[in-house]
Computed example of a mutant assay.
Amino acid sequence: MKSLKEKVIRYILFVFGIVSIIITVNIFLILIKESALFFTHVSLVEFFTKKQWTPLLKPQHFGVLPLVCGTFLIVFFSSIISIPIGILSAIYLSEYSNKKVRKVVKPILEILAGIPSIVYGFFALNFLTPILQKLIPQTNIYNALSAAVAVGIMTIPTVLSLSEDSMQAVPKSLREGAYALGLTKFEVVFGVILPASISGIISSFILAISRAIGETMIVALAAGSTPKFTLNPLESIQTMTGFIVQVSQGDTAKGTIEAQTLFVVAMLLFIITLLMNVLSRYIANKFREEF
């Protein structure tokens, strides 16, 4: 009877695994099909090298660099916030705090990951932007910096949770051996614990960056909808996800080149996110420590 139950559970799990694979493959095929139609009208050279993106306006331009630039502008500034705060918080919770503090503080910080991104978007627009405008008067109402700060706050739990788990997985014997050699607490943390848990820590960085790349509502609300090739975070920009939101509102006729831009941008976003996840898996396997 027990063997029969295990077989049933195994088949159920297999079916769900196959369904998820089929869904992913279908999404990929749809993106490929529509992107191929797009590239019958627009050359790859124009798409990847031109600095003007106005597919919904006349004259039309299809250089995706402004969207890519806007996306990575958000990623860069959000990483400056999430990675240092996340890793330092993880070090404190793992190595310096007691168990009672860890049990209270870690769940509270992880709540940040459960807040809807649209709430972060309104927070950035109505709270962060006015502060930035007081500190830096030339800040636009819609700007990349306030959106990036909100994305950074949202991705802190990703870095913190995964990094702290990796540090906690380091055997106690390594810590005790380091202390027996006369190392200080600081030397143990940065000379033993961090190197031993580096694969999980780097993976947390990459996963946080991947989430920042795919973030939609924060950038749609706070960053604006001006596709601009700029490195100035105080200006209005548009990201790849922000453009997808704009086109998906239903005003664009199906089958037109304007509608196909949605799929080609989604395909580019799909590839970038996939590469980030593959890189995360590669790093995790390459630097994995077996204890």
Rank of each mutant, 00 (worst) to 15 (best):
L274P: 08
F186E: 09
I202T: 07
F186V: 14
S225E: 03
V247T: 12
S197E: 02
D251Q: 14
S225T: 14
G182L: 01
V278F: 15
I271L: 13
S236N: 07
V219H: 10
G255C: 03
E235T: 09
L274T: 13
F243E: 01
F263N: 10
P233H: 06
I193Q: 01
V245Y: 14
I198D: 00
G191C: 07
I193G: 02
S197H: 06
L262K: 05
I202N: 01
S210R: 10
V188D: 03
N232D: 15
V265C: 05
L275A: 13
T216Q: 03
Q249R: 13
V189R: 10
S197R: 06
L275F: 14
L262Y: 14
V278G: 08
V189S: 08
V264A: 07
P227Q: 02
L268T: 06
F186H: 12
M217E: 01
L262T: 08
F186A: 10
L274Q: 10
V264R: 08
G242N: 07
N277Q: 07
I213M: 09
G255L: 09
I244R: 07
Q249K: 14
T239N: 11
I193Y: 04
V247N: 12
A266T: 05
S203Q: 06
T256S: 03
M276H: 08
S210N: 13
V264T: 15
L275R: 03
I218D: 08
T226Q: 15
F229R: 09
I272L: 14
G200V: 12
L274Y: 13
K254G: 04
A212V: 01
T241H: 06
G214N: 07
T256D: 00
L234C: 11
V247K: 10
F190I: 00
K228Y: 08
G250W: 09
F263C: 09
E215G: 03
F205E: 03
L231W: 07
I272K: 04
A220W: 12
S236K: 05
M276S: 15
V188I: 02
R211F: 02
G191N: 06
G182H: 02
A266Q: 00
A208Y: 04
T273R: 01
L231V: 06
T261L: 05
L274E: 08
S248P: 08
T241W: 10
T252P: 02
A253K: 13
G224P: 07
G255N: 06
I206S: 00
